[in-house]
Write a protein that binds this DNA or RNA. Structure first.
Length: 256
DNA sequence: ATGCCGGGTCCTACCCGA
């Protein structure tokens, strides 16, 4: 089973990129983040032709997540359980397919909106850990993938790419990421690439891609029995070299 | 480089991303 994630930075700008990537890679499930459109504006029909059914949680202008699946699935949640009822940010989608709970997230960046913006990020991470704990307590097999906006460790950012107090690397951010690992989840990409730089994002500015100056902020976390079935996990760097790319590259995880 | 690009929208100067 091939499970993928991609922060696409506007699906309307990059529909053709997604279509060609689906044709080439043939994932069973692809989670998308930052679709930057409403549910109604999402080009679901374009993917139906390739055999993918879409579930979309859109929002005007910002955020927005979706999942495309060519295997049968049911949708269990479109918002992160535990968040306030009036939270309108489209950042979470959870489905059941092939006996697995699959979660796609666009975790808040936390650098805008001052301390309140950062507190929102931390609260979101707390609710996410609670959701994962509940699923694991109920013996679900779980994969959670998406744009986490977290560089888990110092080797997860190129030298000089971020300041020490950036919300992606602050100690409180990293502590909450570690808490998810300590619940029993495995970081699929780092587990299979323990000692090499792995980037999933390259800034559009200052020729970051050409300088190989990136961040590892998109992740795939697996529950224990899924981790035992892990075959491969890697970002698809070639997508970033294409014309008008997203600033993130797709991740692909393969499970036996 | 606390925004150098590249999305978005109150259509055009400004907000946001990482």
């Amino acid at each position: 089973m091939k499970i993928a994630s991609w922060n696409i930075n506007s699906i309307r700008q990059r529909e053709s990129h997604v279509l060609s990537w689906l044709e080439r890679v043939q994932p069973d499930v692809l989670f998308l983040q930052e679709i930057k459109c409403t549910t109604e504006q999402f080009p679901a029909l374009a993917f139906t032709g390739l055999g993918y059914k879409a579930e979309v949680h859109g929002q005007k202008a910002y955020n927005g997540v979706a999942v495309l699946s060519r295997v049968p699935f049911t949708t269990s949640h479109r918002t992160l359980p535990g968040l306030p009822e009036d939270d309108a940010q489209a950042r979470y989608i959870e489905i059941e397919a092939a006996g697995i709970t699959l979660i796609g997230i666009y975790l808040p960046n936390g650098n805008s909106g001052g301390e309140a913006g950062y507190a929102y990020k931390l609260a979101w991470m707390d609710r996410l850990a609670e959701r994962i704990a509940t699923l694991l307590e109920n013996d679900h097999e779980v994969i959670i993938t998406g744009d986490f906006n977290v560089c888990p460790e110092p080797q997860d950012l190129a030298p000089g790419a971020l300041s020490a107090n950036d919300a992606l690397v602050r100690p409180e951010t990293r502590a909450r990421y570690r808490r998810m690992l300590w619940l029993g989840l495995t970081d699929a990409i780092r587990t299979l690439h323990p000692n090499s730089p792995v980037w999933t994002f390259y800034d559009y500015q200052a020729a970051a891609f050409e300088r190989d100056s990136g961040l590892r902020i998109d992740h795939a976390l697996l529950s224990p029995t899924l981790a035992e079935r892990l075959l491969s996990a890697a970002p698809d760097k070639a997508e970033r070299a294409k014309t008008q790319p997203s600033d993130h590259v797709p991740l692909l995880v393969e499970i036996s």
